[in-house]
């Protein structure tokens, strides 16, 4: 069994108890940032997954929002607060929408894909802003999560939700890693390089893109549910282009080199933002912008390339050592 696991997967499995333990050790406010970063990190994963196939989704907020609103509406109108039901609903809603939208989107590439995904997400934004029942732009609050009839309170509820956020995030990440290592995953890179050849080799590029799109929507939907539960509130801002843009920002910043890169990237960006606001509450965006520019200029493959470069350096050293 363990033979089939690669390094990343082993690391992820070890990181789960570490993450959960951190929830008890670290001050609560940092845990809170980790928790929301895991939620949005899942969406960034979805963006990164599509980026591997050369597709930049500028509207991933659509599925983030669908997940959050599905959970919120189940709570508001049906009184459901069970986290398993909420995650399942968010997943179902986003996958259903992605299945149908995919027929359209799979035919487009490059800027056309980016603009079309953006347009779809902004349709939802406009719609939700008009709906007074759903609180319009103010959004509405979610109930506290329950777990198969167990309704914790106070600090227990915070830890329970944190643990309940860590587990699905790690599971999704491992599954995505599996997927990317499999033939369907590598097809993505092949499509990015030369779509025509992929077709000649006997695979449908449309179908592969469609599947990728649905998988990205599924993780984004789960991320939306988890994020909304952590915040306790949803509003249409979730599907605004600024939110989607941030997911792209994270993917570029962290790089597409490894599956955990977007998760780390989200957290790092969040912490940088927090300290930027603290250092300069009026011009904190400039600090983030500068960071983005520097990353693009000096690390075109993202922050993760720092780790990869180091690894490569070590292995060449070893090679040299064994030869002598």
């Amino acid at each position: 069994m363990t033979k089939n696991l690669d390094r990343t997967e082993k690391g992820l499995i070890i990181s789960l108890p570490v993450l959960i333990a951190l929830g008890f050790i670290l001050p609560e406010w940092i845990v809170n940032y980790i928790q929301v970063s895991l939620g949005t990190g899942l969406v960034a994963l979805g963006v990164m997954l599509q980026m591997r196939a050369g597709l930049v989704s500028f509207g991933q907020g659509l599925y983030f929002c669908i997940g959050g609103y599905a959970a919120g509406m189940a709570g508001k109108f049906l009184g459901v607060s069970d986290i398993f039901v909420l995650v399942a609903l968010g997943l179902f809603a986003s996958v259903t929408v992605a299945f149908f939208a995919g027929f359209l989107l799979r035919r487009y590439r490059e800027i056309f894909f980016a603009m079309l995904s953006l347009a779809l997400s902004m349709i939802l934004f406009g719609l939700l802003s008009k709906l007074e029942v759903l609180g319009s732009t103010d959004g509405f609050n979610l109930p506290s999560a329950t777990y198969l009839g167990w309704a914790p309170e106070g600090d227990t509820a915070k830890y329970a939700l944190y643990v309940a956020t860590c587990i699905p995030t790690i599971i999704c990440t491992i599954l995505l890693n599996r997927y990317l290592r499999g033939p369907m995953g590598y097809v993505g890179e092949a499509i990015r390089e030369n779509e025509l050849r992929v077709e000649y080799l006997g695979t449908s590029a449309h179908r592969a893109v469609h599947i990728k799109y649905i998988i990205a929507a599924a993780v984004s939907g789960i991320g939306g549910v988890l994020w909304a539960l952590a915040l306790g509130h949803v509003d249409p801002e979730m599907t605004n282009w600024t939110t989607s843009g941030q997911f792209v920002f994270v993917s570029i910043l962290s790089g597409t080199g490894n599956i955990v890169a977007p998760l780390f990237g989200t957290f790092i960006l969040e912490i940088v933002r927090v300290y930027a606001v603290e250092a300069s509450p009026n011009t904190w965006q400039m600090i983030l912008g500068t960071l983005m520019l520097l990353t693009i200029i000096f690390l075109p493959k993202g922050l993760w390339s720092l780790i990869q470069k180091k690894k490569a350096a070590i292995s060449t050293q070893k090679m040299a050592g064994s030869e002598s």
Binding site: W29, N32, V36, A230, L231, G232, E270
Partner: peptide, 21 residues
Amino acid sequence: IFIDENSKQKVADYKKLVQKD
């Protein structure tokens, strides 16, 4: 301590303001 309301993580920012700052 001034902080910007223009943020996506309003609750996390609030907790930071209370707990850390």
